[in-house]
Amino acid sequence: SFQYVPVQLQGGAPWGFTLKGGLEHCEPLTVSKIEDGGKAALSQKMRTGDELVNINGTPLYGSRQEALILIKGSFRILKLIVRRRN
């Protein structure tokens, strides 16, 4: 089963996490790295392996390109929903 975790990061880029996968690579869009001391790490809500399913209220369909555009369009606040295996 899965758990959906809301994450809100503040203060602008860099957000402190790296993505891998996506439709382009025929795999889920997941968090591959969280930078020590970065905003994602400080939130204590994101983990490597989390799947990104929503950015700023926009549902994602797995495209890494789409996710990067939405993330780049976030100035002060980035709201994410990640899906994690229980």
Rank of each mutant, 00 (worst) to 15 (best):
E35P: 08
L23V: 14
T18E: 13
L19R: 02
K39I: 11
Q44A: 10
L52N: 01
K72R: 13
S74A: 10
L68V: 10
G57Y: 03
S63Q: 07
N56G: 06
Q10F: 11
L52Y: 02
G37Y: 10
Q3R: 09
L23K: 15
Q44P: 01
A41I: 03
P28H: 00
T18D: 15
P14M: 00
L78V: 01
R83G: 03
M46Q: 04
I55D: 00
D36P: 14
L52W: 01
W15H: 07
V82L: 13
S1H: 07
G11E: 00
I81Y: 03
G22F: 03
S43M: 02
R85C: 09
A13I: 07
A13N: 08
M46D: 02
G21D: 01
K79Q: 12
L9N: 04
L60H: 00
G16T: 02
G12S: 05
R83Y: 00
G12F: 07
Q10C: 12
R83F: 00
K33E: 14
S32H: 12
R47A: 09
V31Y: 06
K45G: 10
P28M: 08
E24M: 06
E27K: 10
L80F: 07
L42R: 10
I77A: 13
A41S: 11
K20V: 11
L78S: 04
L80N: 03
K45D: 09
P28C: 03
I55K: 04
L70V: 06
D36W: 09
E27C: 09
L60V: 13
R64M: 15
H25Q: 14
S1T: 13
Q3G: 03
L52H: 01
E66W: 07
G12H: 07
F75G: 15
R83S: 04
Y61H: 15
R83E: 04
A13F: 06
I55Q: 03
P14A: 08
K33R: 12
I81D: 03
G62V: 04
K20W: 06
G57V: 06
S32W: 09
R85S: 12
G16D: 06
A40T: 05
L29V: 08
P59K: 14
S74R: 06
D50W: 04
V31N: 04
L70D: 02
T18W: 12
R83P: 05
V82C: 08
S1R: 13
R83A: 03
L19H: 02
G37T: 07
I81F: 06
L23S: 15
I69C: 13
G73D: 13
L68C: 11
L60K: 01
L42H: 13
H25K: 13
S32Y: 08
P14Q: 03
G37N: 12
Q44V: 06
G38Y: 00
K79M: 07
E27A: 13
Q3T: 13
Y4V: 06
R47I: 09
F75Q: 15
Q44D: 12
I69S: 15
E66T: 12
Q3M: 10
G12R: 05
I34K: 04
P6A: 15
Q3V: 11
K79C: 07
L78R: 01
Q10N: 14
G12W: 02
L78Y: 00
V5D: 02
K45T: 10
F2S: 06
P59Q: 14
L70R: 11
P59C: 09
G62F: 00
G12Q: 07
I69F: 14
D50R: 01
A67N: 03
R84Q: 05
E66K: 12
G62N: 05
V5S: 05
L60R: 04
S74T: 12
G11V: 00
I81E: 07
G62S: 06
Y4S: 06
L42N: 11
D50L: 01
T30V: 12
R76S: 14
R83W: 05
K72P: 03
S1F: 08
S74H: 06
K20M: 10
N86V: 14
Q65D: 13
T58Q: 13
S43C: 07
Q3P: 05
L19F: 09
